[in-house]
Nucleic acid binder design. Structure first.
Lengths: 133, 133
DNA sequence: AAAACTATGTTAGATTATCTTACATATAGT
DNA sequence: ACTATATGTAAGATAATCTAACATAGTTTT
């Protein structure tokens, strides 16, 4: 797990914002969580807090559902992608990972900003850039 | 105006998250708003929603306050920077100017910091002098 | 065709997060 | 010494979110 991965996993967004960003209902988002497609963090008071990764996943879920894939299928797809990610991460990226891990807190905002700008194109291939606005 | 401007001004973050991200209290954040240093958006139900720009500004406020600048001074500094931004934006060399602007954004902070540090040495009157380390 | 399952809607009651307003207070400036 | 600045804190109100339960249109399965 590299530093940037942590950043992309930083819990930042309330469900209301995620609803706007993904155009999903709260019911849908909770249902997808219930079925293990996402695992948003929680505040001390039990409110969900979503990361950029969560939002990416939700947009992907939405996309796949639009294409007729059911949740079971999406779950499988996510599993496969996760395995790929594991392989890619474990392989040879130690050095780059190390560099990435040492990002200063000051740079965090800029990274966040960047992430938002390019939030969209899921790294592995298929492209439907969700518009964040 | 590029799409990125829209993104940076997109209201996304609740005050709780901004507190964590900036290490400011809610009181401070609201006070800075009250004095016009930021203008976060609101939800339909009147909750504040902060953008990345807001967070940047808050971090800058915090930084300047740590260096002994009062809110009036910070307001002036923001005004100056805003004017510069306006000029640069109106000068229709948008593409190249944008790069230059990014550079000068980072640079300007350092210059300001230096300048303020020097000024602080002259009229030192407060018990909490800038830590010269 | 009936039964079961899937994915979502809706409602209700409870709880958290945030809001405004007001008062308190320690430092800093005059 | 007085005033202004910047922040803390408390109270009461309300918005946003939570869980749980029941409803339902489609879709599979039997």
């Amino acid at each position: 797990m590299g530093g940037s991965q942590i950043r992309r996993n930083m819990p930042l967004f309330s469900i209301g914002i995620v609803m706007q960003l993904t155009d999903l209902t709260a019911r849908q988002i909770r249902y997808y969580e219930e079925h293990g497609l996402i695992s948003p963090a929680r505040t001390e008071g039990n409110k969900r807090l979503f990361s950029l990764n969560d939002i990416d996943k939700l947009l992907e879920v939405k996309d796949l559902i639009d294409q007729g894939v059911n949740l079971a299928g999406i779950k499988q797809i996510f599993n496969v992608k996760q395995q790929q990610d594991d392989v890619l991460t474990d392989e040879d990226n130690q050095e780059a990972e190390k560099v990435r891990k040492d990002l200063s807190d000051a740079e965090l905002r800029k990274l966040l900003r960047k992430e938002l700008l390019r939030a969209g194109r899921f790294n592995r291939g298929h492209g439907n850039p969700p518009r964040l606005q």
